[in-house]
Simulated assay, not measured.
Amino acid sequence: MSRIGLVAIGRNEGERLKRCLRAVPAGCPVVYVDSGSTDGSVDFARGLGMAVELLPTEGGFTAARARNAGWRRLVETHPALDYVQFVDGDCELAPGWLARAESTLDAEPGLCAVFGRRRERFPGASIYNALCDDEWNVPIGLVNACGGDVLFRVTALRDANGYSDDLIAGEEPDLCLRLRQKGWTIRRIDAEMTLHDADIHKARQWWLRARRSGHAFAEHVARHGDKADPLWSRQRESIVIWGGTVPALVILLALVGLLFPSRAAGLGAILLALLYPLQVARIAFARWRGGASPRFALAYAFWIMAGKMAQFGGLVRFHRKRRSGRASSLIEYKGAS
């Protein structure tokens, strides 16, 4: 463990954070970075003998700022470290993960980061948890980006000067894009990495989470332009079409049909609106063909399409804040009523 240190970040994670910190292997240097918790998280971490970094309120709380504060303090106090494992406070490391990840980075000097399978702790507790579990199951092999739980090479973090502090979401694809432009690669391996507790049980929580992702897609493309991750550029285009353009046309045609009146406009509004159930059916059929149960495939397709509206709200929020020159604030979904 002398070559690996761990950075855990959290904000009012309660019992989730306790599971996270208790799962850290003995002998692993740890820095816990807290973003204004009021639930005793700081005292608990200190009670375990862990170093604690309190993130200043100036500049706003972001996961990017927390991770940067954590790894910089970690390598300052343990300069011999080769790797830093990042873990979110609602996640728990799987036994044996660090050794497996370390051997992967040792074998491939060109890798800047390696990550494995993040699973939901309670996927059956809600359809939203199940959707998160499916989201974490990304392809094995070389990939364009990682998530929040990942083992990073210290030299790569220094090469990119860490995460972008000002991003309220999407900081991992931003960092990975900048590292790939410098010649580094990222690998997802077939190994259990962490258990994640999304704890999403309400549609509003899922809606806010989707809004945050829409904000992230918009900011990533605005920041990187033609060099943006192609997947994120396509996602932004999909959000604009399905979350903004088509609904606007449906409303416009419906108003024209009612005010003037126009049967053609009314029929056009109906036909455009029918595109949504058709798209849900298409996506659900593809997921079912891929091995998903009919129930999950249908729920997945429905929430993917419904989420486009929420994501469009996040996109609009980003551009409104950008025009006004104001910094974006966190979009928090846990605990939302």
Rank of each mutant, 00 (worst) to 15 (best):
A264P: 05
V221Y: 04
L259V: 02
L259M: 12
V221G: 04
I270G: 00
R211S: 13
R188W: 03
S238R: 06
W206I: 10
A269R: 05
I270C: 00
A160S: 10
H196N: 00
A216G: 02
T245P: 01
R211K: 15
E237S: 12
R178I: 06
F217P: 03
R188P: 07
P261W: 12
A248M: 11
G225L: 12
L179M: 09
A191S: 13
R209I: 09
S262T: 07
D149L: 07
R212N: 06
E219V: 12
A216K: 02
T245L: 15
L255F: 02
R236A: 07
A265Q: 05
V154S: 01
G148I: 03
R209D: 10
D149N: 15
G183E: 04
A169R: 09
H196I: 05
A160F: 06
E219Y: 05
V143Q: 10
R236D: 03
L195V: 05
R158P: 06
Q181S: 13
Q235Y: 04
H201L: 09
I189F: 06
A269P: 00
L167A: 11
V150Y: 07
P261L: 10
R234E: 09
E171T: 09
A254Q: 03
L252T: 13
G244C: 08
R204K: 15
D226A: 15
L208M: 06
K202A: 15
Q205Y: 02
W242C: 06
R263A: 13
A254Y: 00
K182N: 02
G244Q: 11
H215F: 14
M193H: 15
A160G: 04
L208G: 08
D199Q: 02
W207V: 10
A156V: 13
L177S: 08
A264T: 11
L175V: 05
G268A: 07
G170I: 03
A248S: 14
G268D: 02
R187D: 11
L272N: 05
Q181D: 13
L259R: 00
L252E: 10
P230C: 04
F260G: 02
A145W: 13
